[in-house]
Design a protein around this nucleic acid. Sequence first.
DNA 1: AATAAATGTTAATCTAGATTAACATGATTT
DNA 2: AAATCATGTTAATCTAGATTAACATTTATT
Lengths: 194, 194
Amino acid sequence: MNTKPLLDYISKYITLTDEEEVFFISKLTYRKYLKGQYIVQQGDICDKTSFLISGCSKTFYVDDKGQEHIVLFAIEDWWVSDIGSFITQTPADYNVQCIENTEFIQFSYQDQELLLDKIPKLERLFRKMIEKALVSTQKRIVRGFSLNAKEQYLYFKQHYPTIEQRVPQYMIASYLGITKEFLSKIKSQILLEQ
Amino acid sequence: MNTKPLLDYISKYITLTDEEEVFFISKLTYRKYLKGQYIVQQGDICDKTSFLISGCSKTFYVDDKGQEHIVLFAIEDWWVSDIGSFITQTPADYNVQCIENTEFIQFSYQDQELLLDKIPKLERLFRKMIEKALVSTQKRIVRGFSLNAKEQYLYFKQHYPTIEQRVPQYMIASYLGITKEFLSKIKSQILLEQ
DNA sequence: AATAAATGTTAATCTAGATTAACATGATTT
DNA sequence: AAATCATGTTAATCTAGATTAACATTTATT
């Protein structure tokens, strides 16, 4: 198991002793998913939090009409889970599905409790992780208010150029809350402008 | 300063020793705002987190066209701040304004750091607070996907009956992301159905 | 290489909700 | 009790973006 990316990530927030690091690693599991596989399915209880090592995933909600709404793409160094479901151990609202073959390092809900018990300074790490998630959610809400579809697409393209390349266009449309047809229109418009 | 509501709130998540409690209280300040006053203004740096003791506030974003978008009403026992601005000490995206005379207990960014230093178990409290905020944000996003305007209004009315009574209708419309005219239409429709 | 499946494009049409404007009511202020 | 201000209502019109459908292209499978 290649724990380096995760340990590097963690070291930005807290410093573990050797002993703590060993215990921490002992609670981690490595898992490889194939393209199309689900890490979380809406309705299930999300029993693990996953740190993405390689690949790409999408987090999305399917409404009554079967419409998919993507809320997040994750790539290297991102955490994924349905946080609401994980925290309260109730059914998940969201799905997380791999859109490439994807590797994760994961820990279970129970092991998170053990980890927090044994290494209280992880509280700080988890706080920081959740803060980051909350901030990016709130920033995205603000973009939804202040930018039109085209501006949101340009923002996405500029800030996540890798994702824009890796992910099919209809998924980007779903992420932006527009149809693929409309995104297509936007893209041709942008081309004309240049 | 009436710290009881806050201490009661905290005791749901952690237990402070007497000494810790004294130190904690020493870093709190009490402040009364008049109706219309701002706790946070977008563009300012949000330097404090506020726990609402009595009254009511709205958190909202004003777009380029001057349009107000309410994202949260807060009443007794809720925390308010622009979390992104508070954490990163960068300009706030949101405004928080009192819609009644309102009392808060507050602590500053600097004192939060002091508090976390002296009482590490507060990490857990703050983690839990932010988890709650993130979960309710994500739940609200799901409602946005799965419910139409009328269903969202009914959800709001059912879950926050107090707020529905206290707050002018045009603010509820803004919270629901619709015009007051349309909310009015919805309400008359609901009346007809009964 | 041929076929099938997935994804993208174009263009016509549709619709939920927004906008506008004129009037109504209820609450404050003088 | 007028006058003013805040909020609500009704109804006509407008529009951003959605939907549909037919076709095009790219990618995966045989």
